[in-house]
């Protein structure tokens, strides 16, 4: 685990020493503020619409971070060094994941001022805010893990970003497609779609199925990274 944390620390430092990491975090915070104004146009002290917009924004963030993960490292030639060093593949996979999760935590932390402002002005229900943040964290980790898997499988950073976006859109489309179907296929496709798993976080409930879904997405992403790196080693 120490190696994994060392990789994560190195990645996190590299992200925040560059303008990319600072710019991403600042832009996400500003976007959250603009979205908050749109949400409050309903004249209600509630943040469900704000959180649902942030879930979409997290998909974009995952694509951006995927761009820099393995693909960028391969382009600059440092991936070869990493894969030939005496670290195990799972340590590399978890190290990379922890690195982007660090960015995720920073980005989410930058939005905390929004609910504080709403609480200062009105009387929002605290429950949906807590579950909303739990949702942001789980959704973020799941999306980032998928992004890492896509990034590990291509040397081109732009393809990595586009591929991550394509995977997330495909999952979203599964839910849309399910609307016109019936039977078990409908149930399966609906379950596969993230949209059917964020409703609970927005209304203030934490369902085991929703938590299990996003943790599974994370596990699948990490396992895919290990498998892809294994074939390339």
């Amino acid at each position: 685990m120490r190696q994994a944390l060392a990789i994560a620390g190195r990645d996190l430092r590299a992200t925040y020493v560059s303008a990319f990491g600072i710019g991403c975090t600042a832009a996400f915070a500003a976007l959250a503020g603009v979205l908050l104004v749109f949400d409050l146009r309903g004249n209600q002290a509630r943040l469900d619409l704000w959180f649902s917009s942030l879930f979409v924004a997290l998909g974009l963030l995952a694509a951006l971070l995927a761009l820099r993960a393995f693909a960028e490292e391969e382009r600059s030639g440092t991936l070869e060094l990493l894969l030939t060093s005496p670290v195990r593949l799972w340590q590399v996979a978890f190290g990379k994941l922890f690195g982007v999760v660090g960015v995720l935590v920073a980005v989410i932390a930058a939005t905390v001022v929004c609910p504080l402002l709403v609480a200062n002005m009105g009387n929002p229900d605290a429950g949906p805010i807590v579950t909303g943040y739990v949702g942001l964290f789980l959704v973020g980790i799941g999306f980032l893990a998928l992004g890492l898997a896509v990034s590990a499988s291509t040397p081109n950073p732009l393809v990595a970003a586009a591929g991550t976006a394509a995977v997330l859109v495909a999952l979203w489309l599964a839910g849309v497609l399910a609307g016109g179907l019936g039977g078990r296929l409908k149930v399966v496709l609906q379950y596969l779609s993230p949209t059917s798993h964020v409703t609970g976080f927005l209304r203030g409930t934490l369902a085991v199925a929703d938590v299990a879904y996003f943790l599974s997405m994370t596990v699948v992403g990490v396992v895919a990274v290990i498998v892809v790196l294994g074939t390339r080693r």
Partner: peptide
Amino acid sequence: GNFLAYAHNAQADLSAAHRF
């Protein structure tokens, strides 16, 4: 794991007055 979670449909309601 997902099949079990889906089948049991357990959830914690953190909303005010457990609205849901």
